[in-house]
Design a protein around this nucleic acid. Structure first.
Length: 196
DNA sequence: ACATTAACAGGAA
DNA sequence: TTCCTGTTAATGT
């Protein structure tokens, strides 16, 4: 949908489908920063700053995107208070998402990382698409959780044995959101983060 | 110890 | 034919 390094002339919205925002490190490792589900917008940061795109935007499946030209975006911002409010709420929501991701990155336990990555995918997607089925490969879950595919696969197998998820070709079915939360929480307790 | 890399086979799309 | 999953052996931290 968009490449890192391009000028950001459009604000991008997802009408249908799912996008990932990612970048590649000098070592060739891919890192996914955010999943952008239908109903969400992305890229306003670069548009606002007249900056180059900071990450790759890629569709994970059949996706329809809306591209709002920069002048229109700026005009809306300058003339409509409700639009400003919408943008404010959206940025606030994203801050929360990134805080959750940062928290996850401080946890080393792979089971908790994968559980947390699935939770990050759940809250936006669950409500928009009507189902807890996430169309994403295990490789990409690993890129979101910061783990290799081998470790991701191992963690998913454990989560499956705990009856928290079901796995299938090219997708994950989340069965127990609260269960995933407690997996993340338990690790906090063990490492002493929640105590003191 | 535990995670990653590399590789392979089997199956799905 | 290409992509995804599940698994293993070797390697690295």
């Amino acid at each position: 949908v968009a490449h890192r390094g391009e000028p950001s002339n459009f604000w991008i919205g997802v009408a249908e489908g799912l996008l990932k925002a990612s970048s590649t490190t000098v070592n060739g490792r891919t890192v996914i920063f955010a999943a952008v589900p239908a109903g969400s917008w992305i890229g306003e940061g670069s548009v606002l700053k007249r900056d180059l795109r900071k990450y790759e935007l890629m569709a994970l499946r059949q996706t329809r995107v809306l591209m709002i030209p920069r002048p229109t975006f700026v005009w809306l911002l300058d003339t409509h208070l409700e639009f400003c409010r919408f943008i404010l709420d959206m940025l606030n929501e994203r801050t929360g998402q990134f805080a959750a991701m940062l928290e996850l990155s401080r946890i080393t336990d792979p089971l908790a990382r994968v559980a947390g990555a699935l939770l990050v995918l759940m809250n936006p997607i669950l409500y928009k698409n009507g189902g807890p089925l996430i169309n994403i490969s295990q490789l990409e879950i690993g890129e979101l959780a910061g783990l290799s595919r081998t470790s991701t696969n191992g963690a998913l197998t454990k989560l499956k044995r705990l009856n928290l998820v079901n796995t299938g070709y090219g997708g994950i079915l989340v069965l127990d959101v609260e269960g995933l939360r407690s997996v993340v929480a338990d690790v906090h307790m063990e490492s002493g983060v929640a105590i003191r």
